[in-house]
Design a binder for these strands. Structure first.
Lengths: 234, 234
DNA sequence: TGTATACTGATTGTATACATTTCCAACCCC
DNA sequence: GGGGTTGGAAATGTATACAATCAGTATACA
């Protein structure tokens, strides 16, 4: 991959991290990356420091960089925090959104539905990222956006798994999420900030349901287990 | 200032920005700074990128770095956002604080009262910064802390002005703020998160009062103006 | 056999030379 | 005289050589 500009390199790395092509916790080697992007180590290090500042990676002295990790503890914190931040941002977005931003939001939602139809989990997650990032822009509040950006990193990485429906029931949940996006667009367009808050909270209730199904799946059929026990006993 | 380590350089620059020794919006020159800290441009640039990532400065391609600016618009956003973030963080801090963190908090508050007694506005603002940063650590929530850190940059820079009391009335407000700090420590120590929220909100009501006095000061005595008019008329 | 220590290869950190871009001012042309 | 152009100084961006640090291994010694 020769001669990408620094900005392209930055956004490519972000994409690879968000899509978990670069797994959480994995090591990043300056030299290898610099060769890969066709630049010397100096600008590559600069890119890495920016990623570190934005929370995509962590660095430690003389020990290089790692993709930011995601343990079970961060997931708990994540679901604790996300509803509040997203709801407040949606509320501000409904107040302050501009016309062009609204178009960008509709674009993102269009990409989202297209990706779900194609059953492309990665594209779905990235479109979802863009959708919520645009709402962040609308809110016009750098303090909250700092928090949102961190949340979106983990949001997108987590949701890779949930946008791969295993059955009709899970497929239904994704359709419901998409409907909520549409409703949110309408609320933001109409400057209805109270409604935007409500819809955001509903959106997160849904996410938590999906999440719980994943963490605590339907138990395996009992008779298979007992069958196995019986066979062992013979 | 020869041979400071990179970390020292980083925290020194943060301090100079927080204390407004480096004014908001002022230009930063790589070469000059590198000489000043006795290092070459390469590590200096690295420090600048970190500061940019943390929101202390802004950089633009081929155009160098500036200290993050503070206009009237950001102040509005600031007061809109700060109560919510600080209150939520205080609540989490009350739940999750550890013993050593509580000691650090008491230390910061000690420094705060000492600085107010000495009428040292800069030291007061920096001690206040540390006080709220420690509460952020206690909360153990990287998403909210991202937002808090941004808020604290502007909080500390703004408050330089308010910790310089012009009269007994304003002095009283600072004493009241200090009392609220003490109450907050007690609430956090006792794991009373609901109380911590309440105290945080009160703290911000006070700040807003102080702020309003600054933006909208007591009008000048009317008769002086009329006197001047009369004299002009003669 | 277990532990401490010295060596070695690999990786990160720094300095410096060089390339590129920007800014500003002098200049020319209309 | 005003506006656009062009030169050059000063700044930022990049590449590369070199220094410092770390991790892993082999070796010596108890």
């Amino acid at each position: 991959m020769p001669r990408l500009s620094k900005d392209q390199c930055l956004s490519d790395l972000k994409l690879r991290i968000l899509s978990t092509a670069l797994a959480p916790g994995s090591d990043l080697d300056e030299t290898t990356l610099a060769e890969h992007y066709g630049m010397s180590r100096t600008p590559m290090r600069e890119v890495l420091h920016r990623l570190a500042g934005a929370g995509f990676i962590t660095t430690s002295e003389n020990r290089g960089a790692k993709v930011a990790s995601m343990d079970i503890g961060t997931m708990r914190t994540f679901f604790q925090t996300a509803p509040m931040i997203y709801a407040n941002i949606a509320s501000l977005a409904a107040e302050a959104r501009t016309g062009p931003q609204l178009e960008a939001l509709k674009d993102a939602q269009h990409a989202f539905t297209k990706a779900t139809a194609a059953q492309d989990a990665q594209a779905t997650a990235l479109a979802n990222h863009r959708f919520h990032a645009v709402i962040g822009e609308m809110a016009h509040n750098p303090y909250l956006v700092a928090s949102l950006d961190r949340l979106l990193i983990d949001h997108t990485r987590l949701s890779q798994r949930f946008y791969r429906p295993a059955n009709a029931d899970e497929k239904m949940l994704i359709v419901k999420a998409s409907d909520q996006h549409d409703a949110l667009i309408t609320a933001i367009e109409a400057h209805e900030s109270a409604l935007a808050i409500d819809l955001s909270l509903q959106h997160w209730d849904l996410s938590r349901d999906r999440m719980e199904r994943y963490v605590r799946p339907d138990p395996l059929p009992v008779d298979v287990v007992s069958l196995k026990d019986r066979r062992n006993a013979v």
